[in-house]
């Protein structure tokens, strides 16, 4: 998950860099105004990697 955030930051997907400081393996210090946008991005990612378990006829 952290790598995904770093990737978003490096590629400027949100229009700008948002990570203020990389704290440790599990913590990032980020700018608070992109949070909402970031959450939708994370949601999108999870949508992509989830596999529909139900068969539809």
């Amino acid at each position: 998950m952290k790598q995904f955030l770093l990737h978003l930051d490096e590629t400027n997907t949100l229009g700008r860099r948002f990570i203020i400081q990389d704290l440790d393996e599990t913590h990032l210090f980020i700018s608070s105004d992109v949070l909402e946008l970031l959450m939708t991005r994370v949601d999108d990612l999870l949508d992509q990697i989830s596999f529909p378990i139900n068969e539809r006829e």
Binding site: H27, F29, L35
Partner: peptide
Amino acid sequence: ASTGKSVK
């Protein structure tokens, strides 16, 4: 000091 969010 800078403002932002961290994780918990």
